[in-house]
Structures are given as structure tokens and as C-alpha cells.
């Protein structure tokens, strides 16, 4: 469970990105963070693992207070927080396997990582995850040889191999086409359900947020202006978050879609429990 209290961030330039944000994300919940550019979504996410140093406030993950940790303890805390990036942020010139294994860096010593001698369980887990995201055949490809959707799957595997207690996901679909975006969002949601992982997802695309998240948090100018389930996201609320626009069509389309997704997912989850195999579309994506 993630607990955020009174989180404030003021940049050196004077911009106040966050102004006293309070937020709790319980076990297994997928929460989407929406809001216009510059609302502080990215800053909020990066404050949680302190890639951005918060100015004031408290953040605690499973009872451990992140704010105020020393460098070593912070590194230990970071390996419990898997992060998935916009534009993937893979190390382009490393292979897929090295990229996935880089998620274990917080667990192994420098020389082991330097000679790429990761412990056998980590490698087993890497293979399992690559199978799960449908990239089993790409192990030794270099990351810059992959397509956008494939890269983001590697990014997801890298975050999951950390064995995280939470996922922080920053615009995972920003540079993907609509179809791949939906596949990636579905994958993230399934994985969170499998592992009962909480996740915070920054999303540009309100439609995707409504379809795939169970909770929506609207941020405007560093303040939370909406917090609730997708059903309560009315045109009035969206106007408050983003400004004047005709929102009704978007909401109608997305919520119909979301219901379909929900039904589909229950079926898929049921199927999984029976067969033990993870997701039928993992195979389909390979083609």
C-alpha cells in the first residue's frame, strides 16, 4: 500500500509542480493519473521513488517511509518500485536480456552485474517474464532492433523482475499506435491482477484511463481535483480538470469499451486459473 501525505514539490526555477497532494493506493489497485500537460503527473510519479526529490510531505510504501531514507536505503526501496517509462527508456545498445536483467541491479553486487553473471533464479525469472510478455524469441536481439510495442514489453519485464511492491507507470502508451496501446494497457492490467500489484499510471489518453483503470485521479496544477471510479468521471469533472470541451462522446465510447474489457478480463482470468498459462494473446502478439 502506498501512502502519500501533503506532498509538495517546488522546482529551483520556482515552479510549484505539486501543492500538498494526499493519496492512498491500496493493494492491487490500478489507478490512472490524468490531467493536462504540466499538471504535475510526472513529478508526482518521480517523487514516489525520489528520482525527483520532494520539497515537503511524506511518502510511505508498505509502512516504510521513503522520504528521508539515506542513499543506500533509498536504493533498497527503489528496487521495490518498478517503473515503466514513456518512450520505453531501454538502454538501446544492450540486448533484450540485459535490459530485463538490469531490473535486478539493486539485488546484485557491482562485479556480478559487470560480468553479466546474474544468479540463476534471476535468469529463470527473466525467461519466464519474456515468455509472459511474448518476447521469448527476442532474448539476444538488441533493444534498438525492436518495434515500439516490443520495447515497451521489455520495459514491463524489466519493471516486474524487480519483484516490486508497486508499479509506477509514466505514459506507457505515449509513442504507440492505438492498437498496441490497448494491448500494452491490457497486459499491464492483467499482470497487476495476477500479482495483486498496485499501480499508478500517468495517462494522456482519457479514453484508455476509463477503459483500463479502476480508479481515476485528476490532477490540475499540482492539486488533486478528482478522485473516484471511472463511472463518476462526468463531462463536468473533465471540464474541471482540462478545461472547456465537449466531453460526452468520449466518455460514452470509453465506458462502453471499458465494460467489454472488464467482462473479457474476468473470462481471461478464469481461463488462466484453469490452465495455468498466462494469457492467450501473448502468443498472438508474436506474429
Amino acid at each position: 500500500m502506498l501512502l502519500i501525505e501533503g506532498l509538495t514539490k517546488q522546482y529551483k526555477t520556482g515552479d510549484r509542480a505539486l501543492r500538498g497532494v494526499d493519496l492512498t493506493v491500496p493493494q492491487g489497485q490500478v489507478a490512472a493519473l490524468i490531467g493536462p500537460s504540466g499538471a504535475g503527473k510526472s513529478t508526482l510519479l518521480r517523487c514516489v521513488n525520489r528520482l525527483v526529490e520532494p520539497t515537503a510531505g511524506k511518502i510511505a510504501l508498505d509502512g516504510v517511509e521513503i522520504t528521508g531514507l539515506g542513499r543506500r536505503a533509498l536504493r533498497r526501496a527503489r528496487r521495490q518500485m518498478g517503473m515503466i517509462f514513456q518512450e520505453y527508456a531501454l538502454v538501446e545498445r544492450l540486448t533484450v536480456m540485459e535490459n530485463v536483467l538490469s531490473g535486478r541491479l539493486g539485488y546484485v553486487g557491482f562485479w556480478r552485474s559487470f560480468f553479466r553473471r546474474f544468479p540463476a533464479p534471476a535468469i529463470d525469472e527473466a525467461f519466464r517474464l519474456l515468455d509472459r510478455v511474448g518476447l521469448a524469441e527476442f532474448v539476444d536481439k538488441r533493444a534498438d532492433a525492436l518495434s515500439g510495442g516490443q520495447r515497451q514489453r521489455v520495459g514491463i519485464a524489466r519493471a516486474l523482475i524487480q519483484d516490486p511492491a508497486i508499479l509506477l507507470i509514466d505514459e506507457p502508451t505515449a509513442s504507440l499506435d492505438p492498437k498496441t496501446s490497448r494491448q500494452i494497457m491490457r497486459l499491464i492490467r492483467e499482470l497487476c491482477a495476477e500479482r495483486r500489484l498496485p499501480a499508478i499510471i500517468n495517462l494522456h489518453d482519457v479514453g484508455l484511463a476509463i477503459s483500463f483503470a479502476e480508479r481515476i485521479i485528476g490532477l490540475r496544477q499540482g492539486v488533486i481535483v478528482f478522485d473516484g471510479p471511472p463511472e463518476r468521471l462526468t463531462p463536468a469533472v473533465l471540464t474541471e480538470i482540462y478545461g472547456e470541451e465537449d466531453w460526452s462522446a468520449l466518455i460514452r465510447a470509453a465506458s462502453e469499451d471499458g465494460e467489454a474489457e472488464g467482462a473479457g478480463e474476468t473470462a481471461a482470468a478464469a481461463g488462466q486459473r484453469q490452465t495455468g498459462f498466462q494469457g492467450s494473446d501473448a502468443r498472438a502478439r508474436l506474429t
Binding site: 540486448t95 536480456m97 540463476a120 535468469i123 529463470d124 527473466a126 525467461f127 532474448v139 539476444d140
Partner: peptide
């Protein structure tokens, strides 16, 4: 291939 399958387990080495 850096990936070898030995006693049912896949092993991985960079080179």
C-alpha cells in the same frame, strides 16, 4: 546462441 538448454533449464550468457 548464448542461450543453451541444459538439464531442462535455460541458461543465459551475454556471449
Amino acid at each position: 546462441m548464448p542461450v543453451t538448454i541444459g538439464d531442462g533449464r535455460r541458461e543465459w550468457q551475454l556471449r
